[in-house]
Simulated scan of single mutants.
Amino acid sequence: MTAVLSIQSHVAYGHVGNSSAVFPLQRLGIEVWPVHTVQFSNHTGYGFWRGRVFDGQAVDEVVEGIADRGVLGGCDAVLSGYLGSADIGHAVIGAVGRVREANPAAVYCCDPVIGDVGRGVFVRPGIPEFMREVAVPAADVVTPNHYELDLLSGTTTTSLSSVKEAVAAVQAMGPKVVLTTSLVADDTPDDAVDLLASEGGRHWRVRTPRLDVAVNGAGDAIAALFLAHWLDTRSAAEAVARASASVHGLLAATEAAGSREILLVAAQGEFVSPSHTFEVTEV
């Protein structure tokens, strides 16, 4: 059975971070070992929350406890998302090192959460540099949104060709596989949004209808789903096809319900049998 160590934030109510990534992985039959970097009542988009942020030592201690069980050799991948501090980031990289020592075939999937269009950079100072200089170079798979791809590559991209160049620049840092989400290029229709999966000098695009829904946690879910399907198929094209179909179905159900939180549980069938599939085009 595939096992994934997922080091992310956690909320009791709603679905972001591990609360968004763990269940889809489990629904696909993957054993998940969640390590929480924060424990909040709800995501911060509500403007008020309760709970606490853990430090790097807390993450180290939990990973050490897992290592005590003698199971790290059975871990196939490490997944990380939002980092509250560089301290947490170094703990994640330490965990990746321990897993790779126990299982050299294990991969690290980094969702380099830094910011987004309209919001700009929303992480603490030092995190963008940590992502660019430490986390991304250590990763095998990265899943930036279009805004984050530009930040990581140090460019501003509008055309598909410039996006490909930015992807190549990120791959030159270390990762073999790049999934660019929320991609809007010159040729992206106003009523659509693109995803671009890149691997081995080739690029595959999936275009899905733009939905009128603004919720947190969708990026965490697609990073987890893309990793799951890439581990299963070792094909970026197949992984983006499956992950995009599932997340579109999840968001469509959320939009139809008018929900502020993604319907991760109610729409769980989308993870195993999506309502719609979309054409994957090599570009």
Rank of each mutant, 00 (worst) to 15 (best):
V4L: 04
L5E: 06
S9W: 03
V11A: 11
Y13S: 13
V16Y: 13
N18P: 12
Q26D: 05
R27T: 05
R27W: 01
R27Q: 10
L28G: 04
L28Q: 05
I30K: 00
S41P: 03
N42R: 04
N42I: 04
F48C: 12
W49Q: 09
F54T: 08
G56K: 08
D60E: 12
E61H: 06
E64Q: 15
G65F: 02
A67N: 01
G73T: 06
G74I: 04
G74V: 00
D76K: 06
A77Q: 07
Y82F: 14
G84M: 12
G84H: 09
D87F: 06
I88R: 10
I88N: 05
H90K: 13
R98L: 01
E101R: 11
A102G: 05
N103M: 03
Y108R: 07
I114K: 01
G115H: 11
D116H: 15
G118M: 13
P125T: 10
P128A: 12
R132F: 04
V134G: 03
V136F: 11
D140W: 10
V142Y: 00
Y147C: 01
E148F: 11
G154I: 11
T157H: 03
L160M: 15
L160A: 15
L160R: 14
L160I: 13
S161T: 13
V163P: 06
V163F: 10
V167Q: 12
A169M: 15
M173N: 12
V177G: 12
V177N: 04
T180K: 05
T181E: 09
D186S: 11
T188N: 11
D191H: 04
A192H: 12
V193W: 00
D194K: 08
S198N: 12
E199Q: 15
H203A: 13
W204E: 03
V206E: 04
R207G: 07
L211F: 04
D212Q: 15
A214R: 11
A214W: 09
V215Q: 10
N216I: 01
G217P: 02
A218W: 00
G219Y: 02
A223L: 04
A224C: 00
A224M: 06
A224G: 02
A228R: 06
T233C: 03
R234Y: 13
R234M: 14
E238V: 13
A239T: 04
A241S: 15
S246I: 02
G249P: 05
A253L: 00
E255N: 08
E255L: 14
A256V: 07
A257M: 08
S259W: 03
R260D: 10
R260G: 01
L263N: 07
G269L: 01
V272M: 02
F278A: 13
T281C: 14
E282W: 12
